[in-house]
Deep mutational scan, measured.
Amino acid sequence: MGKSNSKLKPEVVEELTRKTYFTEKEVQQWYKGFIKDCPSGQLDAAGFQKIYKQFFPFGDPTKFATFVFNVFDENKDGRIEFSEFIQALSVTSRGTLDEKLRWAFKLYDLDNDGYITRNEMLDIVDAIYQMVGNTVELPEEENTPEKRVDRIFAMMDKNADGKLTLQEFQEGSKADPSIVQALSLYDGLV
């Protein structure tokens, strides 16, 4: 993909415009910024974590950033290329609610087996709590990752089998306004 070129080839721009919710001009602008920050044309896990640390200076986002990195890194080569970056950004910032929920499901399904187990969710929720640090005051019933996961599973795990399917996750998330709101945070920002 033209590693350190400051412009993408027209056919690449066209393809990314088809695969995302961005215009050709927006794709070019994002590429310019991506190459400025990642001259090699790729972003590794350490660089990704560094970006998260800028956004969450009062907590430790390392663990959460690693989980997000793994979802962005579609081809699992340990690096995020621009096409992976822009497609994930498109879903998280401008995707439909169902697209965002499928993306979030992939984030929580750490072993990619098609289910979110209690332990997988606990890993992610714990990482989120570490990331936000003491900057967020949580209600008593959610002031630990374990309590939050218990509440989520009580609401979403309809067949009580200890794991969530994509359908259970989507339906449960849509029924909880706070989850829908959290997924909409990026709307309109890009």
Rank of each mutant, 00 (worst) to 15 (best):
E26R: 02
F153R: 02
E146D: 04
T23Q: 12
T17G: 08
I152W: 00
L122V: 04
K147C: 11
K100W: 11
D73I: 14
F48L: 10
V71L: 07
G162Q: 07
F69R: 08
Q170A: 09
I80C: 12
P57A: 06
I179L: 05
E11H: 11
D187T: 00
G2H: 04
A104M: 06
K19R: 12
M156L: 13
K25G: 11
I116V: 05
F85D: 04
G2K: 05
E146G: 15
E120N: 13
A154S: 07
Y108C: 05
G172K: 00
E171F: 00
V12A: 11
N5R: 15
F48T: 11
L110I: 06
F58L: 02
K36Q: 01
T62R: 14
D113F: 05
N143C: 03
L107S: 02
A104F: 05
T117C: 04
N112F: 00
V180T: 02
T92V: 03
K25W: 15
Q49M: 00
Q29C: 05
T62M: 03
L16N: 14
T96L: 04
G133R: 08
A65Y: 10
E81R: 04
I35S: 09
L97Q: 10
V132M: 10
V132Q: 00
K158T: 04
G114N: 09
C38H: 10
I124R: 15
K106C: 03
K19A: 00
G59S: 10
A104S: 08
K76N: 01
K158L: 05
K7Q: 03
D157L: 15
N119P: 00
V132A: 05
T66N: 13
N159F: 14
F67Y: 13
Q87S: 00
K32T: 10
K50G: 03
K36A: 13
Y129C: 06
K32D: 03
A65W: 06
S184A: 13
K163C: 14
D37H: 05
R148L: 09
P145H: 04
G33R: 03
F169T: 03
K25N: 12
A104H: 13
W103Q: 03
N112Y: 09
K76W: 04
Q87N: 05
K163Y: 11
K7V: 02
T62P: 05
Q87H: 10
G41A: 03
K9F: 12
Y115C: 10
Q28D: 13
Y52F: 12
L166T: 12
F64A: 06
F34M: 12
K25M: 15
I51S: 08
E24I: 00
M121E: 00
K106G: 11
L185R: 05
N112G: 01
D98T: 07
V91T: 05
R94M: 14
D157G: 11
K76V: 12
P139F: 08
R118P: 13
S4Y: 02
T62I: 06
S93D: 07
A127E: 06
T66G: 11
K7C: 06
F105M: 12
T135L: 15
G2N: 02
D150W: 06
E26P: 00
F85A: 04
T62C: 06
I80K: 15
D37A: 04
Q42V: 07
T92N: 13
Y115A: 14
E15D: 08
F82I: 14
K19I: 05
Y115N: 10
S83T: 05
G133N: 02
Q28L: 13
S90W: 00
S173D: 01
R18L: 12
V136K: 02
E15G: 14
R94G: 10
P57F: 02
E11C: 15
F85I: 12
G2Y: 00
P39V: 13
K32F: 14
P139H: 13
V12G: 15
F64S: 11
P10M: 12
E146V: 12
K9M: 11
E140S: 14
F82W: 03
R118M: 09
A104K: 13
I124D: 03
E146N: 07
Y129H: 08
W103G: 05
M131F: 03
I51E: 02
L185P: 11
E120D: 09
G33K: 06
T117Q: 02
F55R: 11
N75V: 14
E14R: 06
T20M: 04
N159H: 02
T135W: 00
Y52S: 08
P39F: 10
E74G: 13
Y186W: 01
E84Y: 15
S93F: 02
F55S: 03
K7P: 03
A45I: 00
A175T: 09
K106F: 00
E11Q: 00
F56S: 03
Y21E: 07
T144N: 14
G78L: 09
G59L: 09
G47T: 00
E74R: 13
P145S: 04
F58C: 00
G188M: 01
V27S: 15
A45G: 05
K32I: 13
F105W: 01
K50V: 06
I124S: 09
V132G: 09
Y186L: 03
D60A: 07
V125A: 10
N119E: 08
F58D: 11
A88D: 13
V125R: 05
A65V: 15
G172V: 03
E142A: 06
D109V: 04
T17E: 13
L185H: 08
D126E: 07
K106Q: 10
Q29H: 07
G95Y: 00
E14T: 04
V13E: 15
I51N: 08
L138I: 08
V180P: 14
K63P: 04
R148V: 15
M121V: 09
A160L: 12
T17R: 08
V27H: 07
D37W: 06
K163T: 01
F22L: 10
T144I: 10
Y21P: 02
T144G: 10
D60G: 13
R18P: 08
T17W: 00
F48N: 01
V71H: 14
T92A: 08
K163D: 06
A182S: 07
K53D: 05
E142I: 06
N5L: 07
D176S: 03
E141Y: 04
V12S: 10
K100Y: 08
E81P: 01
Q42G: 08
N143T: 09
F153S: 05
F58V: 08
F105N: 00
F69P: 01
V136N: 02
E146K: 04
I128D: 00
G188A: 08
A154P: 06
I152E: 14
G133K: 02
K174Y: 00
G33W: 02
A88L: 06
S83W: 15
E142H: 11
I80F: 12
F56W: 09
F69S: 12
V68T: 04
K106L: 11
E74Q: 06
A104T: 06
A104N: 00
M155P: 14
V91F: 10
W103S: 03
A182M: 02
P177Y: 14
E99D: 06
K76Y: 14
